[in-house]
Amino acid sequence: MEILPAVLVMALGALILGAAIGYVATRFKVEGDPMVEKINALLPQTQCGQCGYPGCKPYAEAIAKDDAAINLCPPGGDEGARRLADLLGREYTPLSAECQKESKAGVALIDEANCIGCTLCIQACPVDAILGAAKQMHTVIAPFCTGCELCLPPCPVDCIEMKAIPQTPENWEWPRPARKVPVSLIKTPVDIPC
């Protein structure tokens, strides 16, 4: 008989905790998968498809489902892989071999004299950054271009090329200070290894 109160207490406890868990599960239910949004926010949104998925969001979904590695995004680079690793608590792995080719940020430029107005590039552009209609020459809206290069292969006349974004005093960045040697106009600066 001594065991009865213990059993009752345990049963009551189980009941209360079960009810609490059930309530919390319904009350604080999370709609959708917040992880996909978080992953997507870390991806560069170039929409280039170099990861093998048709855009950044599909790649984010694949990562969230653990279907894809986190090191498949060349525009995001090593830094991007590192941040994904931080977010997901996975081990950081450097960019996979086929992603190693240096992806240079740039914008597409259509040589308007050669464009035949075939609209193939318009259909290829993942962010609708190319303007034009059939048999009209097309043009790239440079501020919207992500530099994904997806418009290059479909062009039948190869009139699209990637132009590097030029460096100007406005977008120039101060470099990280090197080990100090004051620069002079006459002598070339030397970095002292330290």
Binding site: W174, P177, A178, K180, V183, P189, D191
Partner: peptide, 8 residues
């Protein structure tokens, strides 16, 4: 060339 920042 590595610019060397102020102050001098």
């Amino acid at each position: 060339m590595n610019p060397f920042s102020a102050p001098y």
